[in-house]
């Protein structure tokens, strides 16, 4: 059953199809927020708010087949608001997002894989726009046209950000490999 059918059933009053939609889209959406916000607790709050707004506003979704992009636009807008608050707070006190962390106990297993840990660090060091584009392209498999529409940039800018990010990641991993070799 595709997203459009499930959305129609939710709008008809059923609750279970919403759970199906959640299971289908939750993981990549949460990964995006974790990457964007770099903080698990904030990511969790924004994630919950995203799904709440999505549920309440489902009737306003004009193209149910494009549910994923719609969810992402809600999540990224909420994340931007959250980041803006950090900036405002940081004017009063020196604080910021935590280092990116994984989900409940899984992080330790991931960190055991040194290459993956190095990749995570390299991702965290990317400029925000490049990090967003890489996430949307690789994890959500959106086209550059879809990414451009979502982020309010041109398709060419999306491509440029993506290729620059991949190059930086390779360079970062290359530097990491050299450090490992030197030990």
């Amino acid at each position: 059953m595709d997203d459009a059918d499930l959305v129609a059933r939710v709008l008809a009053g059923e609750r279970e199809p919403f759970h199906v939609l959640f299971r289908r889209h939750a993981a990549p959406l949460f990964a995006t927020l974790r990457s964007t916000l770099g903080n698990r607790d904030d990511a969790r709050e924004v994630f919950q708010e995203t799904w709440l707004r999505a549920f309440e506003g489902l009737g306003t979704l004009r193209e149910p087949a494009r549910l994923r992009s719609w969810l992402l636009s809600i999540a990224l807008n909420l994340a931007r608001v959250r980041r803006r608050r950090w900036i405002e707070r940081s004017a009063l006190a020196v604080e910021g997002p935590d280092e990116p962390v994984g989900e409940d106990g899984v992080q330790h297993r991931l960190e055991a894989d040194e290459e993956l840990a190095a990749l995570r660090r390299s991702i965290a060091e990317l400029p925000a726009r490049q990090r967003e584009v890489v996430d949307l392209r690789v994890n959500h498999e959106l086209s550059h046209a879809e990414i451009a529409a979502l982020l309010g940039i041109t398709e060419e800018a999306s491509r440029a950000s993506y290729y620059q990010a991949l190059r930086r990641l390779r360079e970062g991993l290359g530097a990491h490999a050299r450090e490992e070799d030197a030990r």
């Binding site: 919403f18 969790r44 799904w51 290459e115 990749l119």
Partner: peptide, 27 residues
């Protein structure tokens, strides 16, 4: 590297279930 990027962003099913509980409670 693209495969590693996907692995680095993966969220386990158990975490998705835990997240659903939070969302369901708020709904």
């Amino acid at each position: 590297m693209l495969e590693d990027l996907r692995r680095a962003a993966s969220v386990p099913a158990s975490a998705v279930d835990a997240l659903w509980k939070g969302v369901a409670a708020r709904l």
